[in-house]
Design a protein around this nucleic acid. Structure first.
Lengths: 221, 221
DNA sequence: GTCTCTTCAGTGACAATGTCACGAAAGCCG
DNA sequence: CGGCTTTCGTGACATTGTCACTGAAGAGAC
């Protein structure tokens, strides 16, 4: 994938014009992370703005009691606004970004970012839109956690994480961290799903055997 | 309060310079809301950007089962970024802003906003910072809801809502809506607080009788 | 192979929180 | 005073979270 591809890939209706892409390419610096590496976190505050070129980043927040919840995922073509937020806000917070695949990111020094934001409407819109999308994502997380049933949320997440063969490669602990709950809870719900023949399990893997029923469950209030 | 005062009031380290203030004043339009009025919501999507000039707005999200949770409050001098997010994102979401006092807001038409964002670094920084702060606010909400104990959260909120006389004018239902829980839960916890002589109650009013102990509880884990 | 070691999953008991169905008490107003 | 609405209290139960422990599955050593 070229940078040109990337700049065309960002989510939204508008596309960055050639001139902006060229300027972005000129100012950008490429950084790579291995699968599993921490891209940013409380002890690793980047001083520049990051755009994801290739791969996927999982952004999660952890409690001081060891529990964890996934906030959202950054896909190729999206920007990682939390790094910006992190930069601007002095307050500490305990969110971190973990590379879920090998990751290539574009780092834009703050100065170059400012210039682009000032001079290119399309770029500025892109960044504002990125912020907006993350806000909406977080609203959804709040809604789920505050008001959602755990079985519904697990069904949703299983469907979202399943591969083409309807299999989810994840331990119960990892699924618990997706939802911000405890492993035992996931085990119990999955056991129930199994009895209802919605899924079958083996160590570290869930097979969705009745996606229709799971979808019905996921979409029930 | 003048607009000049307002532009100096926004949270952060930098201040908007005179030139920016003048331009803002020139482009702005004033809108007023009564205490209790809905400033924005699912059925009331503004087409412009809003900055709060005077008063306070409570932004909350409600579930389809009737429960509700307060996300944050917008104070005078801050911008209401959810309206922006709302504009940019097509997706529906169920957050709404309610005026907690009589409110005076500054509405900046999108075109004027774009020009200012393009031409004034300080203004752009202000807006980015506003977004960042809201993101951080929401991270805190997620953390509280997903991992926090209800008694600790209630103690925190009581302290935050108390007036100079250490009194909180709120029904149990309203406090439940602050925290995204059920009235009965608030009733039970307050009853417990009362037995421990941390608060005393009368209809629609809580008096904090031992703020020290409440603070200790609020700051525990 | 089988032994050990680590990671992962299952389970029962209990605590914390949410839901439901009531009824009692406090204030308002005729 | 006597209705009326809103607010609060409460018990029973469902769901979810915590703790302590057990057993099962796989990886590697031998």
């Amino acid at each position: 994938m070229t940078i040109t591809d990337w700049t065309q890939r960002f989510h939204g209706t508008s596309h960055l014009p050639d001139a902006v892409r060229a300027r972005l390419r000129a100012a950008a610096r490429i950084v790579k992370f291995r699968n599993g590496a921490q891209v940013f976190g409380p002890d690793n505050v980047p001083d520049s703005l990051m755009f994801l070129y290739e791969g996927r980043i999982r952004v999660s927040q952890s409690s001081d009691t060891g529990r964890e919840i996934v906030l959202y995922r950054v896909e190729a073509g999206e920007s990682c606004v939390l790094t910006t937020a992190c930069m601007l806000a002095e307050e500490a917070y305990n969110a971190e970004g973990i590379a879920e695949t090998d990751v290539t990111a574009i780092v834009l020094p703050k100065l170059a970012f400012d210039r682009l934001a000032a001079e290119e409407d399309a770029f500025r819109d892109f960044v504002f839109q990125a912020y907006s999308r993350r806000l909406i994502d977080l609203l959804r997380v709040v809604d789920d956690v505050a008001f959602g049933r755990i079985d519904v949320r697990l069904a949703e997440r299983l469907l979202a994480l399943a591969d083409a063969a309807n299999e989810v490669q994840a331990t119960h602990q990892q699924l618990a961290s997706e939802l911000g709950t405890a492993r035992e809870v996931v085990s119990r719900v999955l056991h129930d799903f199994q009895k209802r023949e919605l899924v079958s399990q083996s160590r570290g893997k869930i097979t969705l055997t009745d996606t229709t029923a799971l979808q019905a469950l996921a979409h029930s209030t």
